[in-house]
Design a protein around this nucleic acid. Structure first.
Length: 642
RNA sequence: GCCGCGUUAGCUCAUUUGGUAGAGCAGUUGAUUUGUAAUCAUCAGGUGGUCAGUUCGAUUCCGACACGCGGCACCA
């Protein structure tokens, strides 16, 4: 008896086919050329090998190599090929896992002597050989015993461990390419030859087995792989472009800040960098004033006992800097501003009428980050938060959270960030507080994030121990994601530190504390801005906005006049009356990314004008000095003030 | 913290087997008064990250440490 199934193609057309038909057979039926280019197929949205048999009615789509969906398969194939190449060249290497990732793939190996980049040439060459041989990928189902026997005989202890940890009902599949094989779920392309040449090994790194720092350190090789060489080249160019935006490089070139070994993870802000930093603070101060915040400042050093009460001493002692004992007391440098904020709140009796009370602080905190975590301005040990603590009632959580979300997004927009990732994290396993309060807090926060209209992802169990949180994430030039803003609902600290208010019935109650930072770390945000603008800071943020450059010393007096007029308007301006050619001055200030260069010579002095040249443009425009002062003054206001 | 790599003049980089380092830019001084991305010349500039070790001799070889970089882990 012949059984018939229905397969439906993306264009909506259905065909009757024999039950058990494979993807390859379907491709062949469509056309010879499709069969030739097909590398996998989608069955009800799940990508399968072409050899997969369809047993019941299904939606089917053939995937050719030029399909985006092919990328992941190519990368995964590439990881297998690399593993084979590595084992061929270095027989004492154990394979572990090797997935496809964004832009490429990696494979973790266990090897006595770690690989170095010098091994890449050899490995790549071997990979090309394997690809050229056009080995077929074939899938086999093995029994657990068969798999364990095979891998343990080969001394592949990591693979054996993986198999042992698989659920008993899980099918154990093996993918072979010629002789070489690996435990793998697939899918793979029909043959290694489809990979082509558009791949490159990128870097070696250590990585813990199963991502656990108590396990052995493996050697990871990262590679990138694409559908064709054009895509590969584009990707490599993109990386090069990103490198040019690196805030560490630009920070040096633009003379914004430096680090030195006596202060690892702490910034030396140069005058220009500090100017930028201050512009950000001033901007935020205005926005917060407008949003009903009051600004405070609290001590950097606080007695150990306070940190014990707050719970920090027990939980975060390892990340705190402390003083030596003086007169029997130990102090700790604050890793967070919240205890200080609570202490300010506690001064004087608070009524429900005082709530919500929004207390802000540009507080500098110190945290002992592991040395390996430090990274330019993005991850430091000493940083300034645009911190605030909103004390409110439980009923005010949602409305206050909404206000914070709106504020944060409005602020990011002023800096040109519209692509913000939001992560919502709910209750972790280790937490304080009762479940019904958590229910309330989570519901309130979720409602708030929904009103932003932005997509958010849920991080189950990643909340703070005292409450759920939202993280606002921006992406840097190199594609790394950085958490900037955060909003945390804290149902714990206020009571630990004894904060109260009197409600409308005269009852003493504990307020809820919303802990929020919008830029997050001023240091990190500055770094992200530098990369975001590739150093070409907008006029209002640029620490040095205008250079008045003379052509000859005849114009020195006129330069003085212009300089004074601009400076009196509060514009950040510098004179360049050096005995240099104008081309030389233009070049130097362009490299320094000064937004506006005003060139003045005889002509300008006679007509009371300036010749203006904007960064990134070769065009020059002539303005009357009063006119341009007005224009630039307007441009120097933050977007919020415009 | 872990694995790997790196550290040479203010900056960007040279100097292949061990014989105490060189260029460009920046800086100095001088000449040049110049019209929109580099005027010419002059001088100066370094105990080669730090500390130990091997050696007659170390920037070069070995080791420790510091810092940085690429990842991993961490990130209240």
């Amino acid at each position: 008896m012949k059984e018939i199934i229905n397969i439906t193609f993306p264009d909506g057309k259905s065909h009757e086919e024999r039950k058990g038909i494979t993807g390859f057979e379907i491709a062949e039926k469509i056309s010879k050329s499709v069969a030739k280019e097909a590398i996998a197929f989608k069955v009800n949205d799940e990508i399968q090998d072409l050899s997969h048999c369809i047993e019941k009615d299904a939606q089917v789509e053939i995937i050719k190599k030029d399909n985006v969906a092919a990328l992941e398969i190519i990368r995964h194939d590439c990881a297998h090929i690399m593993a084979e190449a590595v084992q061929a060249l270095f027989p004492n290497t154990q394979v572990t896992i090797g997935p496809a990732i964004e832009n490429g793939f990696y494979y973790d190996f266990a090897k006595e002597e770690p690989f170095t980049v010098n091994d890449f040439d050899k490995i790549e060459k071997k990979m090309l050989e394997i690809i050229d041989q056009g080995k077929n990928f074939t899938r086999e189902v093995w029994t657990r015993d068969q798999a364990i026997n095979f891998f343990s005989k080969r001394g592949e202890n990591y693979k054996t461990e993986l198999i042992n940890d698989l659920d008993t009902d899980e099918t154990i599949t093996i993918y072979k390419q010629g002789e070489w094989l690996d435990l793998c779920k697939g899918p793979h392309m029909p043959s290694t030859k489809y990979i082509g040449k558009a791949f490159k090994l990128m870097k070696v790194a250590g990585a813990y087995w199963r991502g656990d720092s108590s396990n052995a350190m493996l050697t990871r090789i990262y590679g990138t792989a694409w559908r064709n060489e054009k895509e590969l080249t584009e990707y490599l160019n993109q990386l090069e472009e990103a490198e040019k935006r690196d805030h560490r490089k630009l920070g040096k070139e633009m003379d914004l800040f430096h680090f030195q070994e006596e202060a690892p993870g702490a910034v030396f802000w140069h005058p220009k960098g500090w100017g930028l930093f201050q512009s950000l603070i001033n901007y935020m101060r205005k926005r917060q004033d407008q949003a009903g915040y009051v600004e405070t400042n609290t001590p950097d050093l606080l007695d150990r006992s306070l940190w014990e009460t707050s719970g920090h001493w027990e939980k975060f002692r390892g990340n705190m800097f402390t003083t030596e004992e003086k007169e029997g007391r130990i102090f700790a440098i604050k890793p967070m501003n919240c205890p200080g904020a609570v202490e300010i709140y506690k001064q004087g009796l608070k009524s429900y009428r005082d709530l919500p009370l929004r207390i802000s602080e540009f507080g500098k905190v110190h945290r002992y980050e592991p040395s390996g975590a430090l990274f330019g301005l993005m991850r430091v040990r000493a940083f300034t938060q645009d911190d605030a603590h909103i004390f409110c009632t439980e009923n005010q959580i949602t409305s206050e959270s909404k206000i914070v979300c709106d504020l944060i997004l409005s602020i990011y927009k002023d800096f040109g960030f519209t692509d913000v990732i939001i992560k919502y994290s709910d209750r972790p396993e280790k937490r304080v507080g009762e479940d019904h309060v958590w229910d309330k807090a989570e519901k309130a926060l979720k409602e708030a994030v929904k009103t932003t209209g932005l997509a958010y992802t849920i991080n189950p169990g990643e909340g703070a121990f005292y409450g759920p949180k939202l993280d606002f994430i921006l992406r840097d030039a190199i594609g790394r994601d950085w958490q900037c803003g955060t909003l945390q609902v804290d149902l714990n600290l206020p009571s630990r530190l004894g904060a109260t208010y009197i409600d409308e019935n005269g009852q003493k109650k504990t307020p809820v504390m919303l802990h929020r930072a919008l830029f997050g770390s001023l240091e990190r945000f500055t770094g992200i801005l530098i990369e975001h603008y590739a150093g070409n800071l907008p006029f209002w943020l640029s620490p040095l906005q205008i250079v008045v450059a003379t052509i000859t010393s005849d114009s020195d007096n006129y330069a003085d006049n212009i300089f004074n007029q601009l400076r009196d308007k509060g514009l950040r301006v510098k004179k360049d009356i050096r005995n240099e050619k104008i081309g030389y001055k233009i070049r130097e200030h362009s490299i320094a990314k000064i937004p506006v260069i005003m060139v003045i010579g005889k002509k300008e002095a006679e007509n009371k004008t300036v010749s203006l040249r904007k960064l990134g443009s070769k065009k020059t425009e002539t303005f009357k000095i009063d006119e341009i002062t007005k224009i630039l003054f307007k441009e120097s206001l933050s977007p919020y003030n415009k």
